[in-house]
């Protein structure tokens, strides 16, 4: 077969074909990984001092250690530290949101369960938006038409009107963070994997901030990312995280965070 080809020609042909294939895969995967970080519902605007009131809910914060096998093992002391630091950072930054802000009242019993369930739902909706809308190459066929028309149509449902404090506000601000810090074993696995050419991630640093219409439950604005910066177990890191989460908030005066070298493992600078 193919007697006119010499071995050198064959090798060159193989290398060029493989090179083309690798390039094609690289282009394909980069288009799949092209990622957006924030979106606004079509037609929604919130100018500064608009007369609207924003209900700020207590952030949902989870911090865990990632085992060598990749499982999340909750760490209560880290979660407590992060909750305190993120709460303090939010109190400081919410003054710059550009509109009237009220803190959600302390909730007890059934009210507390309703708040917790809505925060968990917000986390799931944010994850779905990042996975199926912000990752452009992973969009769902039924939503592609909406995406082409610039629609951002996601909701928590009208039960948000039952949240404590909802009757005194127009919108609710939800914050959700989920961090897993790689254990020593996981970091070692990452290094060994890198040498062997197998990709193991160490650490998860997800965060999302969203503004929700308190009458309809519609998501009006979302800023979310699966790889955020800021070590939430420390005051400076938590401030950096909250600043990143609120940096595109409509009508706010919060400046973009200055880049810094300090990042948690696996997070963005």
């Amino acid at each position: 077969m193919l007697p006119f080809l010499k071995w050198g020609h064959v090798m060159r042909a193989i290398l060029s074909v493989l090179g083309a294939a690798i390039l094609y895969c690289a282009i394909g995967s980069s288009s799949l990984q092209a990622q957006e970080r924030s979106a606004v519902r079509q037609g929604f605007v919130l100018p500064p001092q608009s007369g609207k009131t924003i209900l700020v809910l207590r952030p949902s914060v989870r911090v865990a250690e990632q085992s060598t096998g990749g499982l999340a093992e909750p760490r209560a002391e880290w979660t407590d530290q992060a909750r305190a630091h993120i709460g303090a950072a939010l109190v400081e930054l919410q003054r710059q949101l550009g509109n009237t802000v009220i803190a959600a009242p302390e909730a007890y019993g059934e009210d507390a369960r309703t708040v917790a369930e809505h925060l968990a739902l917000f986390g799931a909706v944010s994850d779905a938006v990042v996975q199926y809308q912000f990752f452009v190459g992973n969009r769902l066929p039924t939503k592609k038409r909406d995406n082409k028309a610039g629609q951002f149509d996601w909701s928590l449902g009208p039960d948000v009107a039952k949240l404590p404090g909802a009757e005194q506000a127009d919108y609710a601000l939800f914050l959700h963070t989920d961090d897993q810090f790689g254990s020593t074993g996981r970091k070692m696995l990452q290094i060994v994997g890198a040498i062997a050419g197998v990709g193991f991630t160490s650490g998860v640093h997800k965060g999302s901030a969203g503004l929700v219409d308190l009458k309809t439950g519609d998501l009006l604005w979302l800023n979310a990312d699966f790889q955020m910066g800021g070590d939430v177990r420390e005051a400076d890191g938590a401030m950096k995280r909250v600043r990143q989460l609120l940096e595109d908030f409509p009508g706010s005066a919060i400046p973009r965070d200055a880049p810094s070298a300090e990042t948690p493992s696996g997070g963005k600078p």
Partner: peptide, 8 residues
């Protein structure tokens, strides 16, 4: 199958 993502 899903409408809005496996989470939802």
């Amino acid at each position: 199958w899903t409408l809005d993502g496996g989470q939802l």
